[in-house]
Simulated assay, not measured.
Amino acid sequence: MTASPQDWTRARRLDADGLTEELHARTGLRLTVEGPCPGGEVGAAYVRWPDGRRSVLKWRPDTRIEELRAGPVAVCEVLRAHGYPCPSTELAVQVGHAAVLVQELLPGTPVARLDHDGLDRALALNEAQSGLLTGRADIPSMPLYLLDDGPGYCLHEPLRRHGRRSRDLERRIAALGASRPRRLPGHDVVHHDFHHGNLLRSGGAVSGVIDWDGACRGDRRFDLVTLRFGLHATEQAPGVADRLDGVLDGLPGDVLRVSWAHMSLRMVDWAIRHFAPEDVGRWIDLAEQRL
């Protein structure tokens, strides 16, 4: 799937059972770990409360809980106040160097294959994110990292070293970044990892959106570019990617180019460092389509 903003290598050093023990010591609340969440996220596990209610335990290494409260937690509070289907935060605690959240478990299962109904719902959800953070300068705007490295992702050096095509791609990304703001302008909610695997489906309908760990302020249409990169990872229903490409064709050039550059850097860097060599070329192929 699309590369997450978290450095999951560091997250593996943490353990859900140990964290629940720490939470019990600090809060008196006893949570029982049921197992890891699907999708390869080593920083998320299902837990059960003493009354039998189930939730999701998530943890971020090297993060202050204040950062999450000012960013993702605050964003989700705004969304929920407007009826948007994202999880509530039930507990937020600092445990050593890690920020630990216990979040509502939304109904449904992750969408493995996006169909046209699912795309309609994704587009409607994205539209609902428009303008919700107007006047909320306290919520950080999204960094683009077109000139500098992100925290464990969007690294430039792997592209410079990998090969001719990736070097050329990095040069185009940096050249674009030199003439653009370092942060994504706008007052919309940005999910930051809005791919189909973070949409939940229940009873044939999209029932929720999860994994708001990178949520911030900016231009909601960035999430549509992320969705397009997510569709590239696995086979989808015929015509879905083409329809989304048509939507992207109608975006303002500045929004589309910086969003595409960020996602190109994010995914090609991630592919070079984590995927099989033959996969890297596929991501460069996609990146070059609009850069």
Rank of each mutant, 00 (worst) to 15 (best):
L14N: 05
D15N: 11
A16Q: 02
D17V: 05
G18P: 02
L19M: 10
E22A: 14
H24S: 14
H24P: 01
A25Y: 04
R26T: 11
R26F: 04
T27Q: 07
T27S: 09
T27N: 08
G28A: 06
G28F: 05
G28E: 08
L29D: 07
R30K: 12
L31F: 15
V33P: 07
V33N: 11
E34K: 15
E34I: 12
E34G: 15
C37N: 04
G39T: 08
G40F: 09
E41V: 06
V42G: 03
G43Q: 08
G43S: 13
A44P: 02
A44Y: 05
A44S: 11
Y46T: 06
Y46P: 01
V47E: 03
V47M: 07
R48P: 11
R48N: 05
R48W: 02
R48F: 10
W49H: 13
P50D: 12
D51Y: 13
G52S: 07
V56I: 14
L57G: 13
L57N: 07
L57P: 05
L57W: 08
K58S: 07
W59N: 08
R60Y: 15
D62Q: 13
T63N: 11
T63E: 14
E67R: 14
E67A: 12
A70L: 14
P72L: 00
V73Q: 01
A74M: 01
A74C: 01
C76M: 15
V78Y: 00
L79I: 00
L79Y: 00
R80K: 11
R80Q: 02
H82G: 04
H82T: 11
H82Y: 10
H82R: 14
G83Q: 09
G83C: 08
G83F: 07
G83T: 10
Y84W: 07
P85G: 02
P85C: 03
P85R: 06
P87C: 00
S88A: 15
A92W: 07
V93F: 01
V93R: 02
V95H: 11
G96T: 11
G96K: 11
H97L: 13
H97D: 15
H97Q: 12
A98L: 02
A99T: 09
A99P: 12
Q103K: 06
E104A: 00
L106E: 09
P107T: 02
P110L: 08
V111C: 12
V111E: 06
A112K: 14
R113P: 03
L114V: 07
H116W: 10
H116E: 13
G118H: 06
L119A: 00
A122K: 02
A122N: 04
A122M: 14
L123S: 08
A124N: 06
L125F: 13
L125P: 03
N126G: 09
N126A: 13
E127A: 15
A128G: 13
Q129A: 12
S130H: 10
L132I: 01
L133E: 03
T134Q: 14
R136N: 15
R136G: 09
D138T: 05
